[in-house]
């Protein structure tokens, strides 16, 4: 298998849950190949199982059938080789920003590196997200956007094979979100990260992705279509605003979401 071509891989994945009403099939026939360094967004209406798919990649859930690989190894449970950024940041409130990241750094590099090197790594991760000034602050002392940046720094500090982000900016206001999107683009460009991001924001998907994976509505959701975003890097949101190709791509996604797979009123 050429791991460079298929860095993260899902083959015939099916996910069903046992509920009180019987078996609920959330995902079916999921086939996805993600190359190293690729930025993928999963987009779809709420309830389409996009977060479920991300949790499968994270190993927090195990597929009912099918196979999932990351860097040539089958995904069997969660692990620090896949950095997860949670929707609600999930920082531990009793640890400082430094402490939260250090916990991850220590877990991954504690066996091989000196305490000084671990500290250095932690500080570098904070510097990467421009939070050096908040090193000793507790999560309740910083803003929502800053918390999410610490969450990203924590995930990246482990030098994961792939960065998994579950609607990381969903809970933020529009201005903070735009700011963090710009920062994420720079970080991803600098670290050459492979990213899988769940979003319900069409603009975010087009702005950030190399490829947009559009999902049909559940139950038994699957990948309806994928769209290559062939806009040149680095991207600038101001320039894209007047770019006709950007608008074409954007309307492709909108068409998929609101014409082909419109959500029936819940």
């Amino acid at each position: 298998m050429n791991t460079l071509q298929k860095y993260v891989l899902a083959e015939n994945v099916r996910m069903s849950f046992d509920t009180k009403q019987g078996k609920f099939v959330a995902l079916e026939n999921i086939n996805l190949r993600i190359s190293k360094g690729e930025f993928i967004t999963l987009i779809g209406h709420s309830g389409c199982g996009k977060s479920t798919l991300l949790n499968l990649f994270a190993g927090l859930l195990a597929p009912s059938s099918g196979f999932m690989f990351c860097a040539g190894r089958e995904i069997a449970g969660p692990g620090p080789d896949r950095g997860v950024v949670f929707q609600n940041h999930s920082l531990l409130p009793w640890l400082t920003c430094f402490g939260n990241i250090h916990l991850a750094v220590e877990r991954v590099f504690g066996a091989t590196e000196s305490p000084l090197q671990l500290k250095q790594r932690t500080l570098e991760a904070l510097a990467l997200v421009h939070l050096s000034h908040a090193t000793d602050k507790y999560p309740h002392e910083i803003s929502g956007g800053m918390k999410q940046r610490v969450g990203i720094a924590r995930a990246l500090s482990m030098q994961p094979n792939v960065l998994l982000m579950d609607e990381p900016f969903g809970a933020l206001d529009a201005l903070t979100r735009a700011h963090l999107q710009d920062e994420l683009m720079k970080i991803v460009a600098a670290t050459q990260s492979t990213v899988v991001m769940v979003t319900h924001d069409v603009d975010e998907a087009v702005l950030l992705s190399d490829r947009i994976v559009m999902m049909t509505n559940g139950p038994a959701a699957t990948i309806g279509s994928t769209l290559d975003v062939d806009l040149p890097q680095p991207r600038d949101r101001m320039a894209l605003a007047s770019n006709t190709h950007y608008h074409l791509l954007r309307s492709e996604v909108l068409k998929f979401l609101y014409q082909k797979h419109a959500k029936t009123a819940a």
Partner: peptide
């Protein structure tokens, strides 16, 4: 569950 998920993705030891 969030905190436990952090523990799971980091694969922390029981002691940690």
């Amino acid at each position: 569950q969030d905190y436990l998920n952090v523990a799971r993705v980091l694969k922390l030891s029981e002691w940690k």
